[in-house]
Design a protein around this nucleic acid. Structure first.
Lengths: 128, 128
DNA sequence: CTATATTGATTACAGATGTAAACGCACTGA
DNA sequence: TCAGTGCGTTTACATCTGTAATCAATATAG
């Protein structure tokens, strides 16, 4: 199952809010993205059809909530971009992202810690 | 100008080889991707039409070479995925990529150095 | 010189995507 | 009871993508 660019915008909102009604989605996304309300409704509908969102009738309306994990979608999207754009070479991609990103000092520290732990693991396991 | 997933595969080859003839592209990509030769030809044609590739007649054939910089395309693709998939939050994206990637110790070192320099710059400039 | 092979160009076509209007039903105020 | 209103459903449509066959022109073999 494949989430398109525009659909990601909707999914991000649903993931953030846990559950949300259509009119709220429209309110928060239509203007910001220069979409007509109808466009947002189409997105919701397609995402339901794809199985990315599920609905629960609340009164006569629906509550939308995601039925796929954000992490899973991120993982898939990441692999796609790594494979396609960077030809599977992660390091240049990461270098690029690091260069291009604005990171707070705490985020930098976190990343460094993560790299440290990765390094340790490597040394332990395959002794490179 | 937008390069599709399948087109990235072709572009990656062209970028690697600087310049290349159609039959070579077909040779190197058709089987590996389970594409018919016709499909590869379509890719080349579309990329030329999009302005991503340019052709130079060599004898009666064409030499294909890229007319867009790989870095620029990577930059654009990266921004897209950051904006869409990660909602513009670079740090979680990076954390994810780092976790998911297999990196050599030298690559890890390189990344850490890059983060160091970023940290330094931050401290100098905006004193956060 | 003619038949065949090569290679770029044109055409095809179904499915995904972006973008949105139109439809229908249920409720609400007049 | 009747016209709006709000919301989900259907339908619309141009473009992009993946995938490929066919056409046309040229070169090459016989």
């Amino acid at each position: 199952m494949q989430i398109s660019d525009a659909e990601w915008i909707v999914m991000n909102l649903v993931w953030e809010t846990e559950q949300i009604e259509a009119n709220e989605v429209i309110e928060q996304l239509a203007e910001a993205n220069e979409w007509s309300p109808a466009t947002v409704k189409t997105m919701l509908h397609r995402l339901v059809k794809k199985g990315a969102l599920s609905t629960e009738p609340i009164g006569k309306r629906y509550l939308y909530r995601s039925s796929v994990k954000r992490q899973d979608c991120i993982r898939q999207a990441s692999r796609t971009i790594l494979d396609r754009v960077f030809g599977g070479h992660a390091a240049p991609a990461l270098m690029h992202f690091v260069k291009a990103s604005r990171l707070s000092t705490s985020e930098i520290a976190e990343l460094k810690a993560l790299l440290d732990s990765k390094e340790t693991k490597r040394k332990e396991s395959d002794n490179v």
